[in-house]
Amino acid sequence: MLRVHFTAEDLLGVRFAPEPLPLVELALAVVAAQRTDAPEVFGRWRQRLGRELPRAALPLLEVLRPDGDNPAFVEPLVRDFEEALDAVRLAVPLVDDAELSRILARSRGRAAVAPWLRGLRDGDRESWGLLEDALRAAHEVVIAPHWAAIGQSFRADVAWRAHLMATHGIKAALASTHPAAAWSGTVFEVGRPPDFEIRLEGRGLTLMPSPFWTGRPLLAGHPDGSNLLIYPAMTPMPLVPPGRAQGSLDALLGRTRAAVLSLLIQQRTTSELARDLHISLPSVSEHTRTLRAAGLITTRRDGKAVLHTATGLGVDLLRSGG
């Protein structure tokens, strides 16, 4: 379980990151490609990326693992891609022995440790060149062509949670970041492994949605001294509408998920949603799970039928979105 202890000062210090960051999103995308959850949403995207990811990018799989516990030096919190690469280059020689040992141990669990990983700690130019080439090659295929869509997902999520904060408070906004998230007093909890506990102690929390991350919210240090919470954006990357969204709801939820919410002004079963929207039952289940986690719909079972209905918050979103 993840447990984050807030003080009153921390609750007042919750804010959003201003924009997505290229190497953070790249790292999470490489992680997402190795995960197996949310197959209805990410399945085809993973298959396509498996075909398109260039050979030069494969060394990243030695460092970036499916649990998202990535070494900080490969995902600096820097806005510009070239400057972010410079930050990686400067950080590599400073990686301490404990961090290096952790990276090597993780890699050893998958296969024999690649020699270039050991070379990073020694400042070996060839090893750095291999890492830099991998980051550039992956960025060119995974991030650069889709940067506008990544930004669209990011901005839509921030707009939605800012609305949640304004209308229902900070606790509601944070509780909607994951289906297993809840509050126990002033402790934010997410009931998923591994166990991790932190006391913010007045440092505050910066929120960063990612359209690639699908797991439990991740915690990291922020250069400004606060803590960074990375969580799954409301609209994951494969569901971001192509081109300009038709409206604010499409931008936030994606067209199909917005249509699901719109239909749930009246109670419907999973089968009825699949029939009315011409999508599969697993796809409906994935969409309703996310809408339910965000507090936009409720679900109850009536015999063999599963019934879904928009909540007051969902109706409020439909009204504000036109």
Rank of each mutant, 00 (worst) to 15 (best):
V4H: 03
L12C: 09
G13T: 07
P20E: 11
L26T: 05
L28S: 06
Q34V: 06
R35M: 11
R35L: 08
R35T: 14
E40I: 03
V41G: 01
F42V: 04
G43I: 05
G43T: 06
G43S: 07
Q47K: 03
R48I: 11
R48D: 12
L49Y: 00
L49P: 00
R51P: 00
A57T: 03
P59F: 07
L61V: 07
E62K: 01
E62F: 01
V63K: 02
D67G: 00
P71H: 05
A72I: 02
E75D: 03
E75M: 10
L77S: 04
E82R: 13
A84F: 02
L94V: 01
E99H: 02
L100M: 15
L100F: 02
S101H: 12
R102L: 10
R106Q: 14
R110K: 11
A111W: 08
V113R: 03
P115N: 08
W116N: 02
R118P: 00
G119Q: 05
G119E: 06
G123Y: 03
L130Q: 13
L130T: 15
L135G: 03
A137C: 00
A137H: 00
A138Q: 03
A138F: 01
E140A: 13
E140C: 00
V141T: 11
I143Y: 00
A144C: 00
P145F: 02
I150K: 01
Q152I: 00
F154L: 04
R155Q: 07
W160F: 15
W160N: 09
K171Y: 11
A173D: 08
A175H: 09
A175W: 09
P179D: 13
P179M: 12
W183I: 10
G191K: 15
E197Y: 03
E197V: 15
E197G: 15
E197W: 03
E201Y: 05
W213T: 06
R216Q: 11
P217R: 08
P217Y: 05
L218E: 08
A220R: 14
G225P: 10
S226L: 10
A233M: 10
M234Q: 14
L239C: 12
V240H: 09
P241A: 14
R244H: 08
Q246T: 15
Q246F: 09
Q246V: 15
S248R: 15
D250C: 14
D250E: 15
D250Q: 15
A251G: 15
T256K: 12
S262G: 13
L263Y: 13
Q266D: 12
T269Q: 09
E272W: 03
L273G: 10
L273T: 12
S280L: 12
S280R: 11
S283N: 06
S285Q: 15
H287S: 05
R289V: 05
T290W: 04
A294G: 07
L296D: 08
V306Y: 07
T309M: 06
G312V: 08
D316T: 11
S320C: 03
